[in-house]
């Protein structure tokens, strides 16, 4: 499977994100004491220094903050789908939390399923989930396709 899309390689702090993703839930780490959301996940809260954290469920709604359309040279599995899009989404529930992902026409659709000319900053999107090599990862679909 050397030519497949890359799977996430979680660290200790990020592992819960992927575990929740496996259940189709988009959750973001929050401080259990002061409540501040943080991303990427970290061992302690930069605001109050608490090591206690919880994972807060997000609605999955967001807006495209920016995007690129990569062309080769790329890793083989990505070159096969190029040009495709990679987007940054700011979450409606927490605009300062931004996730990198891909805008697709359906959860299992390829990374190039949305034509590049349809991409625009500010577009409303919704998180969906798909499996890559047995790992559930978020994808994004337009709220109004």
């Amino acid at each position: 499977m050397s030519d497949s899309l890359l799977s996430p390689v979680p660290d200790d702090d990020g592992a819960p994100f992927w575990q929740y993703a496996a259940h189709g839930e988009l959750r973001v780490q929050a401080c259990a004491d002061c409540g501040e959301l943080r991303f990427p996940p970290r061992p302690c809260c930069p605001h109050c220094h608490s090591f206690a954290s919880e994972w807060r469920r997000m609605s999955g709604r967001g807006r495209v903050w920016s995007y690129v359309v990569p062309h080769p040279p790329l890793l083989p599995a990505y070159a096969e789908q190029a040009p495709y899009n990679a987007i940054v989404v700011e979450l409606a529930d927490a605009p300062r939390i931004r996730l990198v992902g891909n805008l697709v026409t359906a959860p299992d659709a390829p990374l190039n399923s949305v034509p590049a000319q349809r991409l625009r900053i500010g577009a409303r999107v919704q998180a969906v989930f798909t499996e890559v090599d047995g790992v559930s990862v978020p994808r994004w679909v337009l709220e109004r396709p």
């Binding site: 390689v9 979680p10 702090d13 990569p70 790329l74 495709y84 990862v137």
Partner: peptide, 22 residues
């Protein structure tokens, strides 16, 4: 693993992609 787990699976692979986003 950090921060690549949040970017590379989605095809944000190269510095050109990362700076292109900004």
């Amino acid at each position: 693993p950090t921060p690549a787990q949040w970017t590379r699976p989605f095809g944000l692979l190269r510095p050109a992609d990362e700076i292109g986003m900004l």
